[in-house]
Design a protein around this nucleic acid. Structure first.
Lengths: 97, 97
DNA sequence: CTTATTTGGTTTATTTTATAAACTACTTTA
DNA sequence: TAAAGTAGTTTATAAAATAAACCAAATAAG
C-alpha cells in the first residue's frame, strides 16, 4: 500500500539540498544556504548527514583566502532521490498527475 | 524557490492517514492501523494531532459492544493536503510527472 | 596598528517529533 | 473464572530538527 519513505530524504532541508544538487553540477555552502534559507548551523548538520550517507560529496577548499565548502550529488544520492519520489507517489495518488 | 512543507503533513504516518482518508468517506482505527502498519500507540497519537489541527473528524462509538473510532477528513484537511502536494512539487521538479 | 565587524563555517544545547512500551478497560473464549 | 484478545490511551524514551553559542580567519574602520 504505502511505500517506506527514506527518512534521510524525508526532511524539508535535506530534501531541498538534494533537490538543488540534482539539477546542478555542484554548489557551495553559501549558495545552498541562500537558496534554502537555512541557518548555517542547521545546514552544516544536514550536509554532514547526507555526506555520511554517501548521498553527496563535500569538498573543503578555498576561494582565494576564504574557506569554501562545495557539495555535489553522488550516484547513490540520485538513486535515493528517485526512489524517494517513487515512494511518495504511493501517498499522493492521482492528485499528483 | 522551495515552498514550506506543512510539518503536520510532512510525517510518514500522518501523510498515510490523510492519504487514506482522502479517498474514502470514513475509516475506522483498526482499518487505518492495518493499512498503514502503524502500532496502535503511534496511530493514536497521530490521529490526535490531525484532529486537533482540524484536518480530520474523529467519532468514538461502538460496534456492538466493542469500541470503535471512526475518522474522516475535513474540508480543512483536504485543503492542507492539496497545498502540501503543491509545495512538494517545488522540491521534486520535473521528476514528478 | 589594533579593535570591531563580517564571513564561513562547526559544535553544543534545546526543543520538537516519532515511536515504543506499558497500561486501561472491556470482551470473548476456554 | 481465569486467560487471552480487542481497541485503544498514556507515558517514557530515542531520534531529529533547530537554534544558539562559539571559533578562526579575513576585512574594514578609526
Amino acid at each position: 500500500m504505502f511505500k517506506e519513505l527514506n527518512p534521510l530524504l524525508h526532511s524539508e532541508l535535506r530534501l531541498a539540498i538534494i533537490s538543488l544538487l540534482i539539477s546542478v553540477e555542484s554548489a557551495d555552502f553559501v549558495y545552498i544556504k541562500e537558496q534554502t534559507k537555512a541557518t548555517a548551523g542547521n545546514l552544516s548538520v544536514q550536509i554532514d548527514k547526507l555526506q555520511k550517507a554517501g548521498y553527496i560529496n563535500v569538498q573543503k577548499g578555498f576561494n582565494g583566502k576564504m574557506p569554501r565548502t562545495t557539495c555535489s550529488i553522488t550516484e547513490n544520492g540520485i538513486n535515493a532521490f528517485e526512489e524517494y519520489i517513487s515512494a511518495l507517489k504511493s501517498y499522493l495518488g492521482d492528485k499528483l498527475r
